[in-house]
Design a protein around this nucleic acid. Structure first.
Length: 826
RNA sequence: GCCGAUGUGGUGAAAUUGGUAUACACGUACGCUUGAGGUGCGUAUGCCGCAAGGCGUGGAGGUUCGAGUCCUCUCAUCGGCACCA
């Protein structure tokens, strides 16, 4: 095994930087313009820093270093999102406390990050498991409660039998637990719920104030999915009952031929309990409902379209007020109780699911909107079901209208007749906030028999997580904290009588929702963060993170911020201005890295072999920052070669400049090449185009070659600064070697190189000449002549090769784009 | 099914407002260096063709003096969501 020749050099400068922690500190009192660069803080797992972290943090670090050199007062902080199941599970396994394990993990993460030369401001480090931190996570919850945005509700929840934890809808993937993959069950548990839906419109609206990339914006809008519905109430024949269905497509209502209820629907309950009697066998209904309720979500949602529809007829009929037709009411499990009103009107001509149901049970099918190409026949197979827009037919007063117009008309009509009521609904659901686990923030609430749920008084925050002997989750679904009778027993904050603490803890997202605010004022004991300081630093200028957080974390986090904005606690409308997605690094086999596949690449093994700078450069050179890329060790060699050649080039330049004793290069060409490079690198860094910036630096090394020896003091500085954001160790090493009396202490405090005026523009420009759109020749045009159309065209036509291609034929059109291109058409 | 992307050499990928397609790197071939090479350096490298030249950015059309880039249709792949009525 080759000895790592980098480590000595790296350790020297690592130590130097450690001795000067102020190098990378953000200054609260600086006059310079601020730049808040945020990377998603990691969960400090026991397996150490992941290559994915290394990749995204390097991107953030390169950007932060660049901005710092440009003169910005940069806030680039780091912390730990340390509550969570893996630590809890590991703690249970090894019978140690999660606190201790977290401490170890964060220590090793921090050491690795320092080694990787991430220029974080360590004086602002936060940890979500620190009581001084979660005091404010709890404080936020209390504010939500006080504003009526947190409530307790018994509800069926998604229960993971393996993790023994309730999951938010968002944490269930295809009916499986997002973490462990186990099949999720339904259970009824009393849960804290946070009313994020109250902010749905604001969350959509606020996106306009951000510079998120389009895919993030549309992901959020789709996730919230705001739609205008109308709830139509039908009279139920004979029973003195009514049923309210919810629809977004009332213009098809003349084609309604049946009504379907979710098994959980109220009316089904009444039938089962015998409160309504019909000619149908109640036992059959009872049996169907029982079966449907017992099905897990997974079974109910599997193979959605195309699966045979099941259902049972109730014996009841709803009357369609538009047609006066009797619509049989059925119970079926494809209707979800949680969507709309839990009752749907069946329009089998224009909804595939309704069609499947109608076909199965021989219910009538009517066309009310012309299909593709104006098709207007009967609907007899699935292909003819038309879910799109079109001209309305067979619909009384709506006939002949386009569906959009018809929709407005029918909505107005139904409202006028008091049959229908418009409402706005969202796909977004309220946020289930309770977790029945130990390793999370205690929910700061007390239950009192007289006063109900009361928040802990703010002066008594934080509600500390007690040290417990056993934190195993329980099969009953009760939090392990419930066993801590001493801790649970408390006084009601309102009346002083005996009360009991809430034993559920908060979900992971709670602590990570607002951490970026705490970096601004990490030690503040009296407020979440000082308002003046927040006003200085917020919003976050660039937030770098993974696509997997675009809907959950980002939305929750924006919600909490908007809520705090309404309280007047924070100074802006949106917390993040720009959002950058980073890509994913796959294993060498092109598969997602995982222990079970054995394709995991760990950063240590890379930087121990190649050094930190090569590791960083390689990660940044692999491809676009937002792309998914497979690890390829072979390509690393190219980057290693590059950094070595760069170092040789700079050494030659240092030597040359010391001999020349010149301020500027003796060779004008050199200055020109460097200027070109500065220009491109600067532009690329602004847009996170790290791969092309590095390509340009490689090009520069190739172009400069031995000419480096003509460098002056100025060029030496420029060359070192250019590489500094990417390869901080190499740059520091060269800087210290080249250092003149007037130079700053560290290259990382120096200013980004400026383009020298007049120092680097080419005298002659190559203009391609095309005949009939195909490039046939190059024309050298001097700078002064560039703007002279006639002269350039004359020169072009006089050019030997061009002459040959023109072949004496008359030129019917001449195009000249100054400095770009000549095109002659014959 | 819906939403969002993406299709360019043997490979990872470049390409300002439409203006020289394939920068940069890997790989490969040949040569040099080295006691040795899983080292370093140099040269070549889109395809067809001896050449002149022609053809080339998933496919088919279109707009334009000029299209990887804009428009229409189409195919494929990836990511997210999904009996949401």
């Amino acid at each position: 095994m080759e000895e790592n020749k980098f480590s000595e050099m790296e350790n020297k400068w690592l130590k130097f930087w450690e001795e000067h922690p102020d190098f990378f500190r953000a200054k609260d009192d600086s006059e310079r313009p601020k730049k808040y660069v945020l990377v998603e803080f990691p969960y400090p797992s026991g397996s150490g820093l992941h290559i994915g972290h290394t990749f995204s943090f390097t991107g953030g670090d390169v950007y932060a270093r660049f901005k710092r050199m440009q003169g910005y007062n940069v806030l680039f902080p780091m912390g730990w999102d340390a509550f969570g199941l893996p630590t809890e599970n590991y703690a249970i396994k090894v019978k140690r406390s999660p606190q201790e394990i977290t401490k170890e993990n964060t220590d090793s993460f921090r050491a690795q990050m320092k080694k990787l030369a991430f220029s974080f401001d360590w004086s602002r480090e936060v940890n979500t498991t620190d009581p001084k931190y979660y005091k404010w996570t709890q404080w936020i919850f209390i504010q939500l409660f006080k504003k009526g945005l947190a409530y307790k509700e018994e509800m069926p929840i998604n229960w993971c039998p393996s993790c023994k934890i309730g999951l938010a809808n968002e944490e269930v993937v295809n009916g499986n637990c997002e973490r462990c993959g186990a099949q999720v069950e339904r259970r009824r548990i009393s849960q804290w719920v946070v009313k994020i839906t109250a902010y749905a419109d604001k969350l959509i609206e606020g996106l306009k104030k951000t510079a998120f990339i389009d895919k993030v914006k549309s992901a959020q809008i789709n996730w919230i999915d705001r739609k205008e519905w109308i709830d139509i109430t039908y009279r139920v024949e004979g029973a003195g009952e009514a049923v309210t269905v919810a629809t977004t497509r009332p213009e098809t209502n003349f084609g309604a031929t049946f009504v379907v209820l979710a098994p959980e629907h109220e009316l089904a309950g009444k039938l089962i309990r015998g409160e309504i009697k019909t000619g149908e066998d109640v036992e059959k209904i009872k049996e169907y409902v029982r079966m449907a309720k017992n099905k897990s979500d997974r079974e109910r949602q599997q193979e959605v379209v195309g699966r045979d529809k099941t259902g049972v007829f109730t014996g009841l009929y709803a009357i369609n007020p538009l047609t006066e037709k009797r619509m049989p009411i059925w119970v079926t499990d494809f209707v979800l109780a949680t969507v709309g009103t839990g009752a749907v009107v069946g329009v089998p001509g224009h909804d595939v699911r309704d069609f499947e149901f109608a076909s199965q049970f021989k219910l009538p099918i009517v066309r009310v909107i012309c299909g593709k190409d104006g098709e207007n026949g009967e609907v007899t197979n699935k292909e003819q079901v038309w879910e799109g827009e079109g001209r309305v037919v067979n619909s009384g007063f709506l006939n002949g209208m386009e569906s959009g117009e018809a929709k407005e008309k029918i909505m107005a009509y139904l409202e006028e007749k008091a049959i229908g009521k418009r409402s706005i609904r969202y796909h977004l659901r309220d946020w289930i906030f309770s977790r029945q686990h130990y390793w999370g923030e205690p929910i700061p609430m007390v239950y009192c028999r007289n006063c109900g749920w009361q928040p802990v008084e703010e002066k008594d925050l934080p509600v500390r997580l007690p040290e417990v002997e056993a934190y195993e989750p329980t099969d009953t679904g009760e939090s392990p904290l419930a066993k801590m009778t001493e801790w649970v027993k408390t006084k009601c904050p309102k009346c002083g009588q005996d009360g009991a603490r809430e034993t559920d803890t908060m979900p992971n997202w709670a602590g990570s929702d607002w951490y970026y605010m705490r970096y601004i004022d990490p030690d503040n004991d009296t407020e979440i963060a000082n308002y003046g300081k927040m006003k200085k630093w917020l919003p976050v200028d660039v937030y770098i993170g993974g696509d997997e957080h675009n809907t959950l974390h980002l939305l929750y986090s924006r919600f909490i911020y908007k809520f705090l904005a309404d309280l007047g606690v924070v100074p802006t409308e949106e917390p993040y201005f720009r959002r950058m997605s980073h890509g994913v690094i796959l294993g060498p086999d092109g598969q997602r890295m995982s222990k079970s596949r054995g394709n995991v690449v760990v950063p240590e093994s890379v930087y121990e072999k190649y050094g930190v700078d090569v590791t960083r450069l390689y990660l940044m050179f692999m491809g676009p920052f937002e792309a998914t890329m497979a690890w390829n060790e072979k390509t690393l060699a190219g980057v290693r070669r590059f950094i070595e050649r760069y170092r040789q080039m700079v050494k030659r330049a240092i030597e040359g400049s010391k001999q020349n004793k010149l301020k500027h290069a003796s060779n004008k060409e050199l200055g020109m090449i460097i200027n070109k490079t500065i220009n491109k690198v600067e532009k690329d860094l602004e847009n996170f185009g790290f791969n092309t910036a590095i390509a340009k630096l490689m090009e520069m090394v190739n172009e400069i070659g031995v000419e480096a020896k003509t460098a002056g003091e100025e060029e030496v500085g420029q060359l070192i600064k250019l590489i500094a954001p990417f390869a901080p160790y190499t740059a520091e090493d060269l800087w210290q070697e080249a250092k003149e009396d007037t130079w700053l202490e560290s290259v990382h405090l120096s200013s980004w190189p400026k383009i020298e005026a007049g120092g680097g523009e080419e005298e002659e420009i190559c203009v391609p000449v095309a005949v009939n759109g195909k490039v046939r020749s190059q024309l050298k045009v001097s700078k002064e002549d560039l703007g002279m159309r006639e002269k350039v065209l004359m020169m072009a036509k006089a050019e030997e090769k061009v002459k040959a291609w023109l072949g004496g034929k008359p030129v019917i059109k001449e195009v000249y784009v100054p400095g770009k291109m000549v095109n002659l058409v014959i």
